[in-house]
Computed example of a mutant assay.
Amino acid sequence: MIINKENVVFNDVTGWRKSSYTAGANCVEINESTPGYVGVRDSKLGEDSPILVFGVDEMRAFLRGVKNDMVGSTPA
């Protein structure tokens, strides 16, 4: 599925939250205030950070891969 993410807007500035695994200032924030999408930004830059936009299914697949230690590994 291809999603046009160019026009996705995250207007809810209070919708940004840091990961519960945050250690110090080096972390990301996510925003789920726009139905069907998840925004990801660098917490150090705050509102000046570029926003990466993912579909909800893409984010779920990514998190599943992280939890299963599959991100960054090379298939055998």
Rank of each mutant, 00 (worst) to 15 (best):
D12H: 05
D12F: 01
D12W: 02
D12P: 10
D12Y: 04
V13T: 15
V13A: 11
V13N: 14
V13G: 04
T14G: 06
T14I: 12
T14A: 14
T14W: 02
T14Q: 08
W16D: 01
W16V: 10
W16A: 06
R17L: 08
R17E: 14
R17Y: 11
R17K: 13
R17V: 09
K18Q: 14
K18I: 10
S19K: 02
S19M: 03
S19A: 12
S20P: 09
Y21M: 09
Y21Q: 13
T22N: 11
T22P: 05
A23F: 10
G24I: 01
G24M: 07
G24C: 08
G24Y: 06
A25Y: 13
A25S: 15
A25M: 14
N26R: 11
C27L: 02
C27W: 04
C27H: 12
C27D: 13
C27E: 13
V28G: 09
V28K: 10
V28T: 10
V28S: 12
V28W: 06
V28I: 14
E29S: 06
E29A: 11
E29I: 08
E29T: 06
N31T: 07
E32K: 11
E32Y: 05
S33V: 09
S33I: 07
T34V: 12
P35I: 11
P35E: 15
P35K: 10
G36F: 04
G36N: 09
Y37C: 08
V38Y: 01
G39C: 04
G39W: 01
V40W: 03
V40G: 04
R41T: 01
R41A: 03
D42K: 04
D42R: 01
S43K: 07
K44E: 03
K44I: 08
K44G: 05
K44D: 01
L45N: 08
L45F: 08
L45W: 06
L45H: 12
L45S: 08
G46N: 11
E47V: 14
E47N: 15
E47T: 15
E47D: 14
D48P: 03
D48S: 13
S49I: 06
P50R: 00
I51V: 15
I51Y: 01
I51D: 01
L52G: 00
V53L: 02
V53K: 06
V53G: 05
F54R: 00
F54I: 10
G55V: 02
V56Y: 09
V56L: 12
D57C: 03
D57K: 15
D57W: 00
D57H: 08
E58H: 09
M59F: 12
M59H: 09
M59W: 15
R60L: 03
R60G: 01
A61I: 03
A61S: 13
